[in-house]
Simulated scan of single mutants.
Amino acid sequence: MVLILALVIVAIVLGIIGAVAHGWVFLLVIAIILFVADMAYAGIRWSRCSGRHPTR
């Protein structure tokens, strides 16, 4: 969970720097890719955890 939160924070910071700094659009692109990858990782991790418990 800490890894997911840390990656989201890094993606937000890179996105802000990439949006504000002129000519640093590649940081914004990296931030978007990082955020999407992080959300995919979180989705896969949460779907695995929820499938292990049998219904009673």
Rank of each mutant, 00 (worst) to 15 (best):
G18K: 07
A40C: 03
I33Y: 06
V25Q: 13
A11G: 10
V13L: 11
A37C: 04
G18M: 11
A42S: 09
V20S: 00
L28A: 15
G15E: 00
I4D: 15
I17F: 09
A42K: 03
L14C: 05
P54V: 08
L27M: 06
I9R: 13
I16G: 05
V25S: 13
G23M: 10
S47F: 06
H22T: 05
A40P: 01
G18E: 05
G15S: 03
P54S: 04
F35W: 06
V20F: 03
A11K: 01
L5Y: 06
S50N: 08
L7Q: 09
A31C: 00
I17E: 13
A21S: 14
L28V: 04
Y41K: 01
I12L: 15
L34V: 11
L5P: 05
I44M: 02
A19K: 12
V25G: 12
M39I: 15
R52M: 08
H22D: 14
W46L: 13
L34D: 15
V20R: 04
R52C: 00
I12T: 14
Y41F: 08
G51S: 04
A21D: 13
I30K: 00
V2M: 11
W24G: 10
M1Q: 02
W46Y: 10
D38Y: 01
R52W: 00
L5G: 06
R48M: 08
L28M: 11
L3P: 02
I44T: 02
L5W: 08
A40R: 03
A40M: 05
V8G: 05
A19G: 12
R52Y: 09
F35G: 05
R56M: 09
M1P: 03
L14F: 15
T55V: 07
M39R: 11
V2L: 11
I9N: 13
S50C: 10
V20G: 00
G43Q: 01
C49Y: 14
A42M: 11
R56W: 11
I17T: 01
A6Q: 12
I32V: 14
R52G: 06
M39N: 02
V20K: 01
V29M: 13
W24K: 14
L27W: 08
I32R: 05
R48V: 05
G43D: 00
V20N: 04
A6T: 12
I44C: 01
G15L: 00
I30A: 08
A31G: 07
G18D: 04
I44V: 05
L34N: 14
H53Y: 04
M1Y: 09
G51H: 07
A11N: 03
V8D: 03
V10L: 15
A31I: 00
L3I: 10
M1V: 01
L3R: 10
I9W: 14
I16Y: 09
V29Q: 12
L5Q: 09
H22R: 07
Y41T: 02
G43P: 04
S47R: 08
V2G: 09
G18W: 03
H53F: 02
I16K: 01
I9A: 15
V36Q: 06
M1A: 06
R56Y: 12
V25D: 14
A6N: 13
A31Y: 00
R56F: 11
W24L: 15
